[in-house]
Design a protein around this nucleic acid. Sequence first.
DNA 1: TATTGTTATACTCTATAACTATA
DNA 2: TATAGTTATAGAGTATAACAATA
Lengths: 149, 149
Amino acid sequence: MHDRIDGQTGYLLVKLGGSAGARFERALAPLGMKGRHVRVLEILRNDPRSQSELCQETGMDRTTMVAVIDELERLGCVRRERSLTDRRKHVVSMTERGGTALGESAVLLTQAQDELLAPLSAAERDRLHALLIRLYAQPPDPCAPLPPT
Amino acid sequence: MHDRIDGQTGYLLVKLGGSAGARFERALAPLGMKGRHVRVLEILRNDPRSQSELCQETGMDRTTMVAVIDELERLGCVRRERSLTDRRKHVVSMTERGGTALGESAVLLTQAQDELLAPLSAAERDRLHALLIRLYAQPPDPCAPLPPT
DNA sequence: TATTGTTATACTCTATAACTATA
DNA sequence: TATAGTTATAGAGTATAACAATA
């Protein structure tokens, strides 16, 4: 009796998620970026988006998005322009420098993930991935209102 | 090429950890408690501890611990007393009411975990648990400096 | 001097409300 | 009137610095 919550699967997930998140943020620090910047750049890789579209796709608040785009602009990774068709909108597009930063971040993040998953064999990683996908795809309460990293 | 970070195992872990954490916090809300209160109560279940001992065992900052103990005291779950042997220390002990609250929280958290793991069979849950334990026990950078829930 | 607990303070992240300009 | 973006502001959560009491 008296199952301690600490040590159970759900809590392990919380703790590992937290430490994985911290690990990824640490990996990105040399670029002066955080996870949320990368997530925006990944969306912008193919096509420009308005800020509100970026909000919808990331789940971020629009006031947070203003700050994130400000920071990406300051880093030279992104450009803001008035939309010609709807002058209320800012079209955000990725610059060449943004593409470079995105590539660098992918390298750093992949490396950090490899370190994180180092204790597992390739087959075990695949099994873990498959199990997590199953959890993530859960229909009721589908992990929707996520604290965005 | 161009592996998107989104969708990879490490990022799944971050997202699932976040949503699992939110789920647990939501489950505890009816008790007026948060995860960190439960973690402290679990430690106090067997023996009283000083605040600094609680800090060591939880990884929480001592200023944060002051607030957490304040809140638990206000809920009547915990009692602060001067140590007789070292009058600098506050001995924190769990009250009967704290024990009741801990029991209730265990029920709520177990229920929340069952919902979280619902998509998996019992065997799959065991496999997931085993994989997470392996990751958690990782020697280099052992998930130590964790954002405490 | 060092440690325990405390307070005041600051910093990050996030969200709410109010404003502007456009539609 | 509704929407896009912005600003100011406030609320959690956490951490740093300074302080009082005690060792």
